[in-house]
Design a protein around this nucleic acid. Structure first.
Length: 357
DNA sequence: AACGCGGGGGC
DNA sequence: GCCCCAGCGTT
């Protein structure tokens, strides 16, 4: 009877310059060496404890380190541990959170302290995830840093590092949309690491100090440049590729109707979501009786909000009996036209066409 | 997938 | 002004 083959290892999400686990281990070693040498001395790293880790991770949600620093110091003096926090009145917490923003974090942290004092400490990321205010990032951060769980976190820094390592040109709809797809890659690197908490922090530290967003990355100083698909490339800063906000394509036909020297305009009503009260060329659908030319005088594209609008402007005629009525309509001569408020594109069109007929 | 949540930093 | 920041909860 043949020996039962062991189940094949789970497919690993690696990349061109980190093709297997052996390379991942070399990557993790290089990163860890750099981190031991170069990590900033942040207060929650100086006083490593579960409590300081939890407090710092709550404060750091969507908040920059420099903003958090003074709050963290004051908080630990006033609320030195979970017991002190659980006993304190909510008003005291909020007062110490004042100015930090996202105040539900303070209330969630309060509830978390009470829960821990009543029922004990969550043991792993899955249990942390059940607590209000703790999502995938915070659960992985706390359990890896304070409890040694081998679970990778993915934040904005890590998205940047991973997409550059793998030259990932996926047009993610947003940075947050990239987190789930990149998690397996992050985890495959974590699996090869020795110290889970240090590895996670090192990935973020690399993004903060070397693999930067607002300036060209310092590839020459990067401890893992030999593992990076874009190291030294001029386009390294272009990663991650975040798709432009999804734009809806819209087509509009407008009419250029002259009566003597006057031009017919309409305006959006006061409650319109866009361009309220601004004068514009009438839409073809507003004036079904108009006699419209076959070919447009002009075709222009422009963007408004999330729409990409292609507008065609047709010369047209309108019998006096069909002239529209109401305050939404106006026949504007050149002088009046100058005084009316038009959107930028409409002003430019009118200027371009003003001598037409 | 898209918002709201808050305040601040970088460009 | 706009995007983003050691994100999460809701819709």
């Amino acid at each position: 009877m043949p020996a039962i083959k062991s189940t094949p290892p789970k497919p690993k999400a690696f990349c061109a310059k980190i093709p297997d686990r052996k390379n991942a281990a070399a990557f993790a070693r290089a990163l860890a060496g750099w981190y031991a040498q170069s990590a900033r001395k942040l207060p929650w790293r100086q006083i490593p404890s579960l409590y300081s880790t939890v407090v710092s991770e709550f404060m750091l949600q969507q908040t920059q380190i420099s903003t958090v620093l003074p709050y963290f110091e004051k908080w630990l003096r006033r609320f030195p541990d979970f017991e002190a926090l659980a006993k304190a009145p909510e008003a005291a917490l909020l007062k110490h959170w004042e100015g930090l923003g996202y105040y539900s974090r303070a209330r969630n942290l309060h509830a978390l302290a009470k829960e821990i004092c009543a029922s004990g400490i969550p043991e792993n990321s899955r249990q942390w995830l059940r607590m209000k205010g703790v999502g995938p990032y915070t659960a992985a951060a706390i359990s890896s840093i304070a409890q040694g769980e081998k679970i990778a976190l993915v934040d904005g820094n890590v998205v940047r590092v991973l997409t550059r390592l793998s030259a990932d040109k996926t047009p993610y709809p947003s940075a947050s949309a990239a987190i789930a797809p990149l998690q397996p890659f992050a985890q495959s690197l974590m699996d090869a690491a020795q110290n889970p908490g240090a590895h996670n922090q090192a990935m973020m530290e690399l993004g903060a100090l070397i693999c930067t967003r607002n300036r060209p990355p310092e590839c020459l100083l990067c401890p893992v440049r030999i593992f990076c698909a874009v190291a030294g490339r001029a386009d390294a800063q272009d990663f991650p590729f975040l798709a432009a906000k999804k734009t809806e394509r819209v087509e509009k036909d407008r009419l250029w109707i002259k009566h003597g020297k006057k031009l017919l305009l309409r305006r959006a009503h006061a409650q319109a979501k866009r361009l309220a009260q601004l004068w514009e060329l009438p839409l073809k659908e507003d004036l079904p009786q108009a006699i419209c030319q076959k070919e447009p005088l002009m075709v222009k594209k422009r963007g408004i909000s999330n729409q990409q609008i292609t507008e065609r402007i047709f010369g047209a005629r309108l019998a006096p009996k069909n002239f529209p009525k109401g305050e939404q309509w106006i026949w504007a001569d050149e002088k009046k036209l100058h005084a009316l408020t038009l959107s930028g594109p409409h002003r430019r069109w009118v200027n371009l066409l003003k001598d037409f007929r």
